[in-house]
Design a protein around this nucleic acid. Structure first.
Length: 971
DNA sequence: GTGGTCTCCTA
DNA sequence: GTAGGAGACCACA
């Protein structure tokens, strides 16, 4: 190696983890072998070998090596045995890819370097030093902060996923210190992932500031006594040794006795046939074609290589779905793909490489141009659509503009209400050169309502509701967020940024950068139109590209019907419910707030008297100090931060032992909870125009398929205590109308009886018996007639425990009995109902094998951590996996009922009976008084038959329904 | 102002 | 023991 030469050092081990988490997880070879990370790795290598000059690196490599970790044990474990001790096992579908990536490196004819006892980082440090000493330059292909200490005048880093070079300046910008101080910085901050201790309470910001002031770690430690902040000084003094140890752990070893010299790393031209043989074996068709072109090889002539994978690694077969492949993609270009799997793979591969060009986006400022785009969308048969507004709440938001995309890269933004930013007191007027909102909406309404044009959104619920307020009903539509939710609930986030990153390998423009944050935050109408165009059009563009990738994935995974029958139709159903809202009586709540305030004030005086001092009752820390410190009461459990727990359970126990203060605290908490969370907060959610409360349901935020409700959460309105239940009297029907509440009785136990196939339970439900009493009688041999309440209560707790993936620990806690006794109950339960234990074992085994579990309707919930080597994480995931099919099937059933409800009611002339709320197993309706009697039987029938005809449950479903003037009486 | 912890409300 | 959302407090920036 000589001056002018340039060595590329790829951090292979780092890359594989990053690729795995950033790239599509579902990429598999036709035999089911997961190859997503391998695919990303090969594409990256090819790009660097061919076009490194065109990337941010800007130079062509003359020398090249890929470096791997040899094993997890290195010399660092000798100085600190706990180093990297809490590393989780790699995910199951990543394991076989480790070997494949080494194979890939060899197929590229590149040196593949690893060495026992050293981390890849040490080898990289050594080669970087050698290159610099030889007069050359080095580029480390990685974005790992642990390598940043190596950056210097002749050594830089390169992040291939973000196409970003990291030099001295970037390190300073990111960490506040130059590369040579990174070691000291890391020694101070530590690293929880690698288990490097560091100094507690010191993060990157503080560390940088300290190093700036004191120069280096040794000086800092020797002068730590001068630091003004008490906590910081004490931490530094007490942990100086830890900091020094950490420094040794993070400092990379740059004198590893490497076997290969620099000359052996010299880059050779690729061996076309050898590389193509490997790529064909991996079924990377796009890259195969590119390599064939570039090397002048006839790919058809090359046989796929035989690539061996460690045994058991590819045990799982492909998942061939029953659904048909998706239809046209709207580009008009026929694609050769004879199976959904191939199309899905092809699309995913292609999408990763495509560039996003903000400069190509169009800003539409006149009706004529808008008309042309509408026409273009009609011809394409589909359009991605996104709105920009002034608020996150679609019930309050004003439209600022909207964007369209008709093909990848072909996107436009239509500004409607942008204001000039120079804010005099009048706030700057509307900017010229924008189409009027009403005219623009009229222009696109026919498109949005056109039955032959598919509208594609990301979280379309927002845009749908916004336009519904303008009288526009978008149909037909698809939602990429919901597609992702169906594909990978529990495995990943479904927001646009996450999806774009994962499927397109692209980080979208940041909303925060556009509008600012904190005090300086502005609404979207204050954003400059040019910047808004890039941002908004990109959103539509990305949504369209995501749709092209995700739609075939649904088919390939057999999840089209889950998406189309359980998910997509919910958008319009939920929008109508949110739009209607529910009437909340301000007076009732305000009166209650007043009462609560008085009660609480009186209680506070009593509490201060009993405690002998005034303190912040709401502070668990202060309360704990008084109860368990000054008053010396026996403390029960501790929280994970080492504080004494002051939970209701602990306080109740103290109260039962005759202590007066804990009792008062429990009562005070109840009152203040009801006041702050409900009676004080709810009126603030009454909409200024509709006078009603419009909650927001999230369709994609639970792993199991349940909805969640927020702002306000109307799924946790109190019901258990008489005091709390009063809050429900404030949820009322307007004059002349009634509220109807209809709830499933024991739906989850019924689902359990069905899926686990338990004869006694099924019979009991068929006979309409009291299920908890029956359980008790089976378990304890007590006749149902004249059964003591306590016996039934215990059986009920066990039944719930089963649904939650029972543990002796949990049941003991719930019932307040010793763990051994709880264990004995569970044992007896399993003896009486052996089918339940079988179901649990079956479910866990399935989840370990596949990474997910399924509801009765085929919805999947992913629990990748069920294979964790950490027993408590594993046990937690096992319980969740047992619960998900039960909770999720019940969620699917009520979704099916909700989707059919409006049509069923309308069919019988009850169009005025409307659904307002869903609370997991309960639906709340509002109906004209005279329709109530007719509506209730229809509602019950729809709900009780909701599983049909898709699934015939082997137990009947039962629904109780009644009507009243308020929610408390109706429930 | 933001994020973490603790507590508590629901099915 | 499952699934959620939210308010208060408190330490940090």
């Amino acid at each position: 190696m000589k001056k002018g030469d340039h060595l590329f050092l790829v951090d292979g081990s780092g890359y594989i983890f990053r690729a795995y988490h950033a790239l599509p997880p579902l990429t598999r070879k036709s035999d089911g072998l997961p190859v997503g990370a391998v695919s990303g790795f090969c594409n990256m290598l090819w790009k660097l070998l061919r076009n490194a000059r065109d990337t941010e690196v800007g130079v062509t490599p003359t020398h090249f090596a890929v470096i791997f970790d040899y094993s997890s044990k290195t010399f660092r474990n000798e100085i600190y045995p706990e180093y990297k001790a809490n590393r989780a096992e790699p995910p199951e579908d990543l394991v076989p890819q480790f070997g494949l990536i080494r194979e890939a490196t060899r197929a590229f004819d590149l040196p593949c370097i690893e060495m026992e006892g050293y981390e890849a980082d040490d080898l990289i440090a050594t080669y970087a030093r050698l290159a610099v000493e030889a007069g050359g330059d080095a580029t480390i292909v990685s974005s790992d902060k642990d390598l940043m200490q190596l950056v210097g005048p002749c050594v830089s880093m390169y992040d291939p996923m973000k196409d970003r070079e990291i030099g001295i300046e970037e390190v300073v910008e990111k960490w506040g210190v130059p590369p040579e101080k990174m070691i000291d910085l890391q020694a101070l901050t530590g690293d929880s992932i690698d288990n490097v201790p560091g100094v507690p309470g010191i993060g990157p910001k503080t560390a940088a500031q300290l190093l700036e002031e004191y120069g280096d770690l040794d000086t800092l430690l020797s002068r730590a006594g001068e630091i003004k902040q008490n906590k910081r000084r004490e931490n530094l003094l007490a942990n100086a040794d830890k900091a020094r140890l950490s420094r040794e752990l993070v400092r990379l070893k740059n004198d590893v006795p490497v076997e290969l010299g620099l000359d052996a790393l010299e880059l050779r031209p690729p061996d076309g046939p050898k590389l193509i043989a490997f790529l064909k074996a991996m079924e990377f068709s796009t890259l195969t074609r590119r390599v064939a072109e570039a090397t002048g090889t006839d790919a058809a002539e090359v046989e796929p290589a035989f690539v061996e994978v460690e045994e058991g690694a590819a045990a799982r077969g492909p998942d061939v779905g029953t659904a048909s492949p998706s239809g046209g993609d709207g580009t008009g270009v026929p694609e050769e793909a004879d199976t959904p799997e191939k199309l899905a793979r092809k699309r995913a591969e292609a999408a990763l490489g495509e560039a996003i060009d903000h400069a190509a986006y169009v800003c539409i400022r006149d009706l004529e141009t808008l008309g042309k785009w509408v026409e273009e969308a009609r011809e394409a048969g589909l359009v991605a659509f996104d709105t920009e507004t002034t608020s996150l709440d679609p019930m309050q938001a004003e439209i600022v503009g909207f964007s369209l995309a008709t093909a990848p890269g072909r996107a436009a933004y239509v500004p409607l209400n942008h204001k000039s930013g120079n804010g005099d007191l009048l706030g700057g007027g509307r900017v010229d050169g924008q189409i009027g909102t009403a005219e623009a909406l009229s222009a696109i309404r026919p498109l949005l309502e056109d039955g032959s044009v598919l509208k594609i959104g990301q979280n379309l619920k927002y845009d749908w509701l916004l336009l519904f307020r303008q009288g526009i009903e978008i149909a037909p539509y698809d939602d990429t967020m919901l597609m992702s939710y169906v594909l990978e609930a529990g495995a990943q986030a479904h927001g646009m940024d996450a999806l774009s990153q994962r499927w397109l390998g692209h980080t979208p423009l940041s909303y925060k950068e556009l509008t600012g944050s904190g005090r300086a935050k502005v609404t979207f109408d204050m954003v400059d139109i040019e910047k808004a165009t890039a941002y908004a059009a990109e959103d539509a563009d990305i949504t369209l590209r995501l749709w092209r990738v995700l739609k075939p994935q649904l088919a390939a995974r057999g999840l089209v019907s889950v998406y189309e029958r359980l998910e997509r139709p919910m958008v319009s159903v939920i929008c109508r419910m949110e739009h209607r809202g529910i009437t909340v009586d301000r007076q009732i709540l305000s009166r209650m707030s007043g009462d609560f305030a008085q009660t609480a004030a009186a209680m506070e005086e009593e509490i201060y008297a009993l405690a002998g001092e005034r303190f912040t009752i709401g502070s668990p820390k202060q309360l704990g100090e008084i109860l368990f410190g000054r008053m010396g009461l026996p403390g029960g459990t501790k929280t994970k931060t080492g504080q004494w727990s002051t939970s209701a359970q602990v306080l109740e126990e103290l109260a039962a032992a005759g202590h007066e203060l804990p009792r008062k605290i429990v009562d005070w908490r109840q009152v203040t909870k009801l006041k702050s969370t409900y009676t004080d907060a709810l009126p603030g959610y009454i909409h200024p125009e509709t006078g009603r409360v419009h909650t927001s349901y999230s369709l994609a935020s639970t792993t199991t398929g349940r909805l969640s409700s927020s702002e306000p959460n109307l799924q946790n309105i109190p019901v258990r205590t008489a005091e709390g239940r009063k809050i429900r009297t404030a949820f009322v029907a307007p004059k002349g109308r009634k509220l109807i509440s209809a709830d499933y009785s024991q739906i989850e136990l019924r689902v359990l009886a069905h899926v686990a196939d338990i004869p006694q339970l099924k019979q009991a439900f068929a006979d309409g018996l009291d299920i908890h009493a029956l359980t008790a009688s089976e378990m304890f041999g007590v006749p149902v007639e004249g059964m003591p309440g306590e016996v039934r209560r215990r059986a009920k707790a066990i039944n719930f425990g089963i649904i939650y993936g029972i543990s002796a620990y949990g049941l003991a806690n719930q019932l307040g009995i010793p763990r051994e006794e709880a264990g004995a109950y569970i044992k007896r339960y399993f003896e009486r109902f052996p089918g339940i234990r079988d179901y649990m074992e079956r479910t866990k085994a399935f989840c370990r094998e596949n990474g997910y579990v399924e509801t009765v309707f085929g919805r999947r919930a992913y629990y990748p951590e069920i294979r964790s080597s950490n027993p408590s994480i594993r046990a937690f995931n096992e319980r969740a996996a047992i619960n998900a099919p039960i909770q999720g099937s019940a969620a699917d059933i009520i979704r099916r009922a909700m989707m059919r409800m409006d049509a069923a009611l309308a069919q019988d002339g009850l169009g005025d009976v409307v659904m307002l709320l869903q609370v997991h197993d309960e639906l709340i309706f509002e109906a004209p008084e005279e329709m109530v009697d007719k509506a209730i039987p229809i509602i019950r029938t729809v709900m009780e038959n909701a599983a049909l005809p898709a699934r015939a449950l082997s137990v009947p479903l039962k629904v109780d329904a009644r009507a009243a003037d308020n929610w408390e009486e109706a429930h």
